[in-house]
């Protein structure tokens, strides 16, 4: 019989350290498959964030650089301007991209920097132990809002795709999810497009991936996928926010 899902060459063949059911592994695979399919592994440079995915510099089988918390888009900018022949991506979590690094996120998008950003939104700080994230939902409990997110105290969650869609420099923005196999297959298309855009010199592309952190949510991996379906999708509708085929904004609640 024929193996139909060989491990992508762009992913080093090692066991990943992520917790059971964590979405990072799937997201890593999608990025690696996109690199394989576009034949860009050798000329790709990845930026690993601060957070659980810090170790992704060991996992992606391309040149990697690990940088300061939130500064991925700035580091990617330096790499891309210096090596425009290379494909540069920054892999970031919600605390990294939407809290401490929001300035770099917005300005790299405003500059229309020809880079690809993979943004993992799991509504919590994973590495540090489940603190409130900029994307934590209203009422969602976290170790720094034990009674649940309260707008009077903690304000409101940030919708990154909607925010960046206001910027002329942003070329392609899409929000996808990993909570079912069908959604994973859709997410793959978005990730690949975000890389294809860079190959084609089209400019700033960001894919927001709704993902799970069962450990810090204190629930099982299956319950965590249900949390995306029941709670996160309402706050973060999936769809293309910028750069849809035909130029139309296509946001669907699925």
């Amino acid at each position: 019989m024929l193996l139909i899902n060989p491990r992508p060459e762009s992913l080093v063949d090692v066991k990943m350290h992520y917790c059971p059911g964590c979405g990072h592994g799937v997201a890593h695979r999608l990025v690696a498959e996109a690199m394989d399919e576009l034949g860009i592994r050798e000329r790709t440079i990845g930026v690993a964030p601060v957070g659980c995915a810090v170790f992704s510099d060991d996992y992606f089988n391309c040149d990697m650089i690990q940088g300061a918390h939130g500064r991925g888009p700035a580091i990617a900018t330096g790499l891309k301007r210096t090596r425009p022949d290379c494909i540069v991506f920054s892999y970031q979590g919600d605390g990294d991209l939407a809290s401490i690094g929001m300035g770099e996120t917005i300005h790299s998008a405003a500059r229309g920097e020809n880079i690809t950003i993979i943004f993992i939104n799991n509504a919590t700080y994973g590495m540090t132990g489940g603190q409130m994230a900029p994307t934590t939902l209203m009422g969602q409990k976290a170790s720094t809002c034990p009674l649940g997110r309260d707008p009077q105290v903690n304000g409101y969650p940030i919708k990154v795709c909607e925010l960046l869609a206001q910027l002329e420099g942003a070329r392609y923005l899409e929000r996808v999810s990993l909570h079912t196999a069908a959604h994973v297959i859709k997410a793959k298309k978005a990730v690949k497009k975000a890389f294809q855009n860079q190959v084609d010199g089209k400019g700033f592309s960001l894919v927001e991936i709704l993902s799970t952190c069962p450990t810090n949510m204190g629930i099982s991996p299956l319950e965590a996928t249900k949390f995306i379906a029941d709670k996160m999708l309402a706050q973060y509708p999936l769809g293309v926010y910028k750069g849809a085929e035909g130029g139309k904004i296509d946001v669907s609640r699925n």
Partner: peptide, 21 residues
């Protein structure tokens, strides 16, 4: 049936899917 959906959601790339050619 070798549909591979299990491998799609596996975070650890632990599942190999085989099909008759």
């Amino acid at each position: 049936s070798g549909c591979g959906l299990c491998a799609q959601v596996c975070p650890d790339l632990a599942i190999s899917v085989f099909k008759e050619a």
